[in-house]
Design a binder for these strands. Structure first.
Lengths: 120, 120
DNA sequence: TATCAGTATGTAGAGTGTCTACCTGTCGGT
DNA sequence: ACCGACAGGTAGACACTCTACATACTGATA
């Protein structure tokens, strides 16, 4: 996927997971872009590093799709920030993405297991 | 990701998972392309449908990378098939892909949880 | 014997999402 | 006066999967 290898223990995102991650991050309340990067980093103990070059386009995409809404605001340290929040549509989207993710992980988990005995 | 929606309960693959799936499928022994499709389908109870248009290029990719080896053979029903098998390199690759996958799922799982209490 | 479904391998091109690499600007501390 | 952290953003490359199509062989069935 990404051309480069993993120098430390870095995990590259899989295509399609970023939307889920963003929606998930916004579940705790409105947040601005840069804040999400840190939130996700902290929440995953430094495993997931969302690149801003991926994040901002993804946010715009989600806004276009109506999953999140945005407005200018002021951060704690008195900076002009673009705040994002989940819409009703976004909450539904999150639910859908989560179940999709669960299905996929379960399916892959079942491939990890020894072959299933065929059932008649 | 894919332009179309999900008619039934179909789960689209995430980009980057196919290699893991193929390597995993070959863990049970050599197999040919079409056979893998059915194996994966059966093993995941019809959740994962690997498209042949994705599979064959992926197999070629893995051969190029030395993760799998291939040779012509004969299937059970007397058909000319291209058999694939894991190489030593491929087995190592599988291990790597699995740990990568585990890291990612764990990281995303931790995002699903309530926010972590910050630790000093 | 014609035809069709299933088996089997493959290619071309589109679409999409993430990445790297860059750019701009503000604020607080030194 | 400068620097690092904070904050938002764009352009283009790259990689992967998808749809759609093409080929060929086999066995069953009409």
């Amino acid at each position: 996927m990404a051309p480069k290898n993993t120098p430390t223990s870095r995990v590259e995102l899989l295509q399609g997971t970023l939307d889920l991650i963003i929606l998930q991050a916004l579940r705790w309340g409105p947040c601005h872009g840069y804040g999400m990067v840190q939130l996700i980093r902290a929440q995953t103990r430094n495993v997931l590093h969302v690149e801003t070059g991926s994040l901002y386009p993804a946010l715009q995409r989600l806004v276009r799709q109506g999953a999140i809404a945005t407005e200018w605001g002021i951060s704690d340290n008195n900076r002009r920030v673009r705040m994002y929040r989940l819409t009703t549509k976004g909450r539904a989207r999150l639910t859908a993405e989560r179940s999709r993710w669960e299905q996929l992980t379960e399916a892959i988990a079942s491939l990890m297991l020894p072959p299933a005995a065929e059932e008649p």
